[in-house]
Design a binder for these strands. Sequence first.
RNA 1: GUGAGCGUAGCCCAAUUGGUUAGAGCACCGGGUUGUGGUCCCGGGGGUUGCGGGUUCGAGUCCCGUCGCUCACCCCA
Length: 452
Amino acid sequence: MKFQNVKGTRDFYPPEMAVRNWLVGKWREVSQRHGFEEYDGPALEYLDLYVAKSGEGIVSELYHFEDRGGRALALRPEMTPTLARMVAARANALPKPIKWFCVPNFFRAERPQRGRLREFLQWNIDIIGAPEDRTDLADAECISVALDLFEQLGLTTEHVEMRISSRTVFAEILSTLKIESDRHPLIFNVLDKRGKIPPEVFDAELAKTGLNETQRNTLNEMMSVRGDEAFSQVEAILGPSAKSDSSCAQLKSVLNALKEQDDRKALDYCVFDPSVVRGLDYYTGIVFEAYSTGDVRRAICGGGRYDNLLAEMGGGHLSGVGFGMGDVVLGEVLEECGLIPGLTESVECYVATEIAEKIPDVWTIVNILRRQMKQSCIFSYKAGSLKKQFQQAAQHRAEFCIIVGPSLAVKHMATGRQIDLDLPSNLHTGSAQKMLREELSKTFATLKQSDT
RNA sequence: GUGAGCGUAGCCCAAUUGGUUAGAGCACCGGGUUGUGGUCCCGGGGGUUGCGGGUUCGAGUCCCGUCGCUCACCCCA
């Protein structure tokens, strides 16, 4: 084999493409039900767009090159900069809140490993410009979209959980612990690693940021519990400042909104988990990650509130919340849970003949079916044994097989029932074609009825 | 970029531990039976054992290199 696909990319043969289309279809369906509009941007952007958001360090992580005009371009590694750019360009003209989604492919120049490729699809959901005093509802709606998707895919609370935390709660805790806010980003960065490194290493890393033992222990204890217990811990740490307008209350109101849904099922997926921090500096409010409860360890999706990002990228002061969900990890989880359906492409008709001289008639009938009757239709280019052609018809999940011989026969593949029709001697007259159409329609209907 | 494991047919795997001409199954193509279908039977194409070198009378098997894949680290938008 001389050529192969580029490392970290995938070939989608028809069976894989069917699964991909199925998944993307679910993403679209759920997005639209929640009132999100689809958009897209270019796969190529100026390299500077990403440097502006993430710093020079990002350059080694993405595919970039110089075009013939000397411009530094990059293949998009994420959507947020493009989204910010697009929103900024029409910030005043777009009705708020802006609720957009997209399902683009992204490229990252990383070493592929489990759940991570160099090209992948990612569903992006964003709500921008929600009223500042009701961002809790935007947060809840955003999370609700993800949970609805899980339900649509058959992923239950047995399979996945949504871990929710809040950067503002953390900020308040750090302030209570007398840690200046300019050190918060550095500390968040360490806190984010907590689940991935041994406890001693974690403690040492925290110590490096200048936290004393009491501060470290307080954070560690709080991050080791979840749910109501975590709320108690947080409230204990915050003490008298944990009032109704506190960050903690805001987080609770997001969870409450999810609870208010009619079936209350959404909340069952969710848990307050202070160990969720997220690695990005721009998050300003709630942060959340969905995880499989099974063997797949990576996050299925992640997101949060980013109220300053748009302004930083020149988009004016607009609140924002959103998440991304990649197809790779999700696909692995679905596979593991046996939730990927059998998706064989099917056609409505197969036209067969044993007689070589009838091939022109086959071709004519195929065209009548396709062009006049709008039926999907395939046939064999060569006359041959009916056995073989039936096998092909069955392989393609044809609903009907039309056999052209001295006369016509229509066979219903599911039941094996067969009805004979006359074959007009000249298929090229309008009246013959009209008659054939009517006969075929009637026969299809009859055979379908007998099925039920 | 760092480390580890693995490379035999399109796919999943064999090959008596170094011994003749590298084999099955699935898939694909062709033929036959059931006289018009997913069964069964027969046949066929397809491999320089990733590639290159070395040790040996002899290498798919051992050694070195290289490429590729996978997993982990880094990073995670």
